[in-house]
Write a protein that binds this DNA or RNA. Structure first.
Length: 300
DNA sequence: AAATGCTCCAACCGCTCAGTG
DNA sequence: TCACTGAGCGGTTGGAGCATT
């Protein structure tokens, strides 16, 4: 007995959206802002379910979305992030504000998988644990959110410190693009996100989550460790297998795909992550190292 | 030119989580 | 505490368009 469909099958249109429908949806959102999706079909007269409206907006109509033609930089970043986060496309997408999770997911499934397979064929020694997409789904949702939140906080911090290089600024600016819907409510949703994050970060720093409140168990720690190790080209076989236990792709493959300089920060940190589960404080340190590495990658 | 196979991506489905009363 | 609902996420699918035979 599953949950009933989000919307009645009868009278609900499916399939590709017409330009007219797009226009109606965009006009409505310009006026009322995104959100309260349940009200959208009713108020617009669109014969679509609210979910469909939301998806259409977030994946296609939302301002600031870049479509197609992934740059080499984006590709590299996706590969890095996929190795770190697994198939958490929403989290990955949060690092590429101009791309949607759906877009990244599609790109990964069509282009990247192929590339990796090719590489596998060329170098049979690697990828003992299968493709990254085979990753276990055991990682909790809280972990995904944590990753995303950390990234958002980092973005806010970066903005505050003006650390970004030009192309990263472009990405951030997509949140505040002038082409956003003009209404205050809709722009607020996107344009003020960095402000909100800044505030959130400030609050977080004042009142850091208690260890007990967050999922501070060793599962997360171990995943962090595995993921970190999974990006380490110089790691031992044991390390690689640790990553692959999680279903992550062999670091060797990503290394060769990316041609990453072996002097990347995490290389020197790897030794920190060898061993059994650690207390939460150390897990936090690991996380910050992970983020440091990512930050360095982005700022490079 | 027609048939067939393949690729790619927009959209859907089902699940989980968070918020609310 | 529990049930309900809305929102978000990741996996999967359908079909349009392109390539090949």
């Amino acid at each position: 007995m599953g949950r009933p469909p989000c919307c009645d099958k009868v009278g609900v249109k499916k399939g590709p959206w017409t330009p007219e429908e797009d226009l109606i949806l965009v006009s409505y959102i310009q006026e009322h802002g995104p959100g309260n999706w349940r009200a959208v079909p009713t108020n617009t007269g669109l014969m679509r379910c609210n979910k469909s409206c939301r998806l259409r907006w977030t994946n296609y109509l939302r301002p600031g979305i870049k479509r197609g033609n992934f740059t080499e930089e984006e590709e590299k970043l996706i590969i890095h992030l996929q190795a770190l986060l697994g198939n958490r496309w929403a989290a990955i997408a949060s690092y590429l504000p101009e791309r949607t999770d759906n877009d990244i997911k599609n790109y990964w499934n069509t282009h990247m998988k192929k590339k990796i397979k090719k590489l596998q064929a060329g170098d049979g020694s690697s990828m003992s644990g299968g493709l990254p997409s085979d990753q276990s789904v055991s990682k909790g949702r809280w972990e995904r959110r944590l990753q995303t939140d950390i990234h958002m906080a980092k973005q806010a911090l970066r903005e505050a410190l003006s650390l970004d290089k030009p192309n990263c600024q472009t990405e951030l600016k997509s949140f505040t693009k002038p082409c956003q819907p003009a209404t205050s409510s809709s722009t607020t949703k996107y344009a003020s996100s960095t402000e909100n994050i800044s505030r959130w970060l400030q609050g977080w720093m004042k009142n850091p989550p208690k260890p007990g409140a967050a999922p501070s168990n060793s599962e997360y720690e171990q995943h962090s460790i595995n993921n970190m190790v999974g990006t380490d080209s110089s790691s031992s076989e044991a390390s690689a297998s640790a990553a692959n236990n999680d279903g992550s792709a062999s670091p060797i493959v990503f290394e060769s795909l990316l041609n990453v300089d072996s002097s990347t920060p995490e290389m020197s940190e790897t030794s920190l992550f060898q061993g059994e589960s650690k207390p939460i404080s150390e897990a936090q340190v690991q996380l910050s190292l992970l983020e440091t590495w990512l930050m360095d990658y982005l700022v490079q």
